[in-house]
C-alpha cells in the first residue's frame, strides 16, 4: 500500500506543486486547507507523514504540530514544515513544536521528493 501523506496548505498553487512533485512516486495524497481541517481529518486519514505550511487561517502549522504531538495514536507521525521563513526563530519554533524537519519555499521538487522518501524510510526502519 502506498504511504498516505496529508498535505496542509492554504495556497492552491502550493498544494498543486506538492502534488505534482509527489504524485509520480505513487503516494496517496490527501489535502486540507488549514490546521483545524487537518486535525479533524487525521483520525480518518491516518497519515504516515504530514507536510504542513506554517501561516494559515484558523490554525497555523506550528499549532498543528503541537496538537498532533498530543494525539496518542498519531503523536509520532513525522511532520515536515513547509515554510518561506528560513530565519533562526522559525527553526527554533519549529523544533520546539515537535516538527520533524522543514523545507524552505520555494522548494526544489526533487529535494521535496528526497526528503519525503527519506523520512518515510526512517519511519519504516523504526517499526
Amino acid at each position: 500500500m502506498s504511504a498516505r501523506i496529508l498535505v496542509v496548505e492554504d495556497s492552491r498553487v502550493m498544494r498543486q506543486m506538492v502534488r505534482t512533485a509527489l504524485e509520480p512516486d505513487g503516494y496517496d495524497l490527501h489535502e486540507r486547507e488549514d490546521g483545524r481541517q487537518a486535525l479533524d481529518a487525521i483520525p480518518s486519514v491516518a497519515p504516515a507523514l504530514v507536510i504542513t505550511d506554517v501561516n494559515m487561517p484558523e490554525m497555523d502549522g506550528l499549532s498543528l504540530v503541537r496538537a498532533i504531538r498530543t494525539l496518542a495514536p498519531f503523536r509520532f507521525v513525522p511532520v515536515l514544515v513547509l515554510t518561506t521563513e528560513s530565519g533562526d526563530d522559525m527553526k527554533r519554533a519549529g523544533r520546539a513544536a515537535g516538527a520533524t524537519g522543514w523545507i524552505v519555499k520555494p522548494f526544489d521538487p526533487n529535494q521535496l521528493r528526497e526528503v519525503v522518501a527519506r523520512v518515510l524510510r526512517a519511519r519504516a526502519a523504526r517499526r
Partner: peptide, 15 residues
C-alpha cells in the same frame, strides 16, 4: 551550523 549558513533542511535519523 545555523550560524555558518542557512540550514535549508534538517532530517532526523531515528534508525
Amino acid at each position: 551550523l545555523e550560524s555558518v549558513g542557512t540550514l535549508l533542511e534538517v532530517e532526523v535519523d531515528t534508525s
